[in-house]
Structures are given as C-alpha cells and as structure tokens.
C-alpha cells in the first residue's frame, strides 16, 4: 500500500512538459482544474478528457504510472460514486422488473464525478512526474514572492517542503523496518478493537519519532556545514526562466479554455 503512493514522484526523463517552467505548469494546472469543473455537457467532457490524454502523452511518462497513481484513491472514487447512485433523487432504475433504490440521475452524476476526480489526479500527477520537487518548490516560492514583502517566509517554506519530500521514502522505509522488528517481538498491528490497535501503534510511533528527530538534528548540522544561511542570497543550479515552450503551452491552453467556454455557452 505504502509503495503505491506515486504522487510526488519525479520521473527524470526529457519531454516538452519537463522543459516547461514550473510556474507555467502550476498556473496551468490550476486553470485546468477550473476547466474540469467548467465542463457541463458531453462535448465539454470529451474535450477535457482528450486534452488530459494529450498531457499524459506529452509527458512521456509511462501511462502505467498514471494508473498506479490512481490506485490509492480508488476507494474514494467508488465510495462517492455509490453515494451518488443511491442518494440522488430521480427516476429509479428498474432491473428485472424490480425497482432498485438506484436512480438514472445518480448514475450519470456518479460517472461525471468519477471522471472529474480521475482527471484531477492525473493532471496533478503530470505536474509532479515532470517537475523535480526542488524545481517545483522553486516555482511555488517564485509565485509566492509577492507575499514575501508582506512578511511571509516564502523561502523557508519552500525549503521545508522540499526536505519533507526528500525524506518521505526514507521514513517509509524506516516505518517498515520498525514494524517488522516489533512484529518479530510479537506485536500485533492487525487485529483487535480500534483502541487496541491504536495502542499497538505506540511501539512503532515512538521509535519513528525518535529517529526523525535524530535525523533532523543531524541534517541541520550537515546543512550548516554546507553554509546554509537561509534567506534570499541563494543562487540556483537551474535558474528557472520562461522559454518558448512556455508561450506555446500557454497559447494552446488558452485556445482549449476558450473552446470549452464556447461549448458551455452554446450547448
């Protein structure tokens, strides 16, 4: 299960999407999410789906990765779909002459919601697959920079984020190790009442926290040894800047967005 979490994993290959400026990608992602919710008719849905498919192909990330990324939220998708099917008022569906509590309207709504969720996850994954976390935080930091004047510590926030991302795999590995060790001593994480299970977590969480604090301590010393002084004086290995690929992407996106709005108004 822990291994299925692909969101936040970077795919170090080359593609037009990889070459885009992170700021462009973040802004377009936000617009794309708006677009997903703007679509309100069949033509609109088809357009958004096709556009998302194009993004997936342009990223050159194996399609398999996108589907693996959907796995952890499959439950949420199914759950909301079931709720929609049963709880939406409307014409009841008849099966073998029996009236079921499901409705046609619910079925349609469930389909729409599921599609929206899937598209949402896929486009967000497209951002993280094609942007290294450091560049991504760089982009966020630049986008937030107007707020720095208001006293928001944008640089420090970005650094915190990228370190958190860096240590996710390390801590997952560590959790796995501690769990196994405690299991070897007869710990049982899987059975019993909720209270028992929560209690059973202590032997795992305490060593995990201790180790996380130790890591944080050592990392801070190592960062200081490498002259980390915070603040804005830093330069970058890869300074981000807008290039032609960004302008092309923005233009294509605006066309798509215009088409979508036209569809919404006309149909």
């Amino acid at each position: 299960m822990l291994k299925d979490i692909t969101l936040g994993q970077f795919f170090p290959i080359d593609s037009p999407l990889h070459r885009m400026d992170p700021r462009t990608k973040i802004l377009l992602l936000i617009l794309h999410i708006v677009a997903i919710f703007l679509a309100n008719n069949t033509a609109g849905y088809v357009l958004v789906t096709l556009f998302t498919l194009m993004i997936m192909l342009l990223s050159r990330v194996p399609l398999k990765m996108y589907f693996r990324g959907l796995k952890p939220i499959l439950f949420v998708i199914i759950f909301t779909a079931v709720l929609n099917i049963f709880l939406t008022p409307g014409t009841k569906i008849e099966l073998f002459n029996y009236e079921t509590p499901m409705t046609w309207e619910g079925l349609v709504l469930a389909g729409k919601m599921a599609l929206r969720l899937v598209l949402l996850i896929i486009t967000s994954s497209a951002l993280t697959y094609t942007t290294s976390p450091i560049i991504l935080t760089d982009g966020i930091e630049k986008l937030l920079s107007p707020f720095a004047k208001l006293g928001l510590p944008t640089y420090e926030l970005a650094m915190m984020m990228s370190i958190a991302i860096r240590f996710i795999p390390t801590l997952i590995e560590e959790t796995d190790k501690i769990m196994k060790a405690q299991k070897a001593r007869g710990a049982d994480f899987e059975s019993g009442s909720v209270i028992r299970r929560v209690k059973a977590l202590a032997p795992m969480l305490i060593p995990l926290f201790i180790s996380a604090f130790r890591r944080a301590d050592e990392l801070a010393v190592a960062m200081e040894s490498r002259c980390y002084q915070g603040g804005s004086k830093r330069t970058r290995l890869n300074e981000i800047h807008f290039a032609s690929v960004d302008y092309v992407a923005a233009a294509i996106f605006l066309l798509f967005f215009a088409a979508l709005i036209t569809l919404r108004i006309l149909l």
Binding site: A181, P207, I210
Partner: peptide
C-alpha cells in the same frame, strides 16, 4: 530475530518494560 541497529526500536520508559514487551505479547 534481532534486526540491524536494534537499539533504534526501543520505545518504553524503562529497560524493564522494554525487555518485557515480547513476553507480554
């Protein structure tokens, strides 16, 4: 089974409690 760096799995407030974790289970 004693894992590598087993000292990283200690969690109880006293040595007695920590060693008794297995027998208690």
């Amino acid at each position: 089974l004693v894992f590598q760096y087993p000292e990283h799995q200690l969690f109880e407030e006293t040595i007695y409690k920590d060693i008794s974790y297995g027998p208690k289970n």
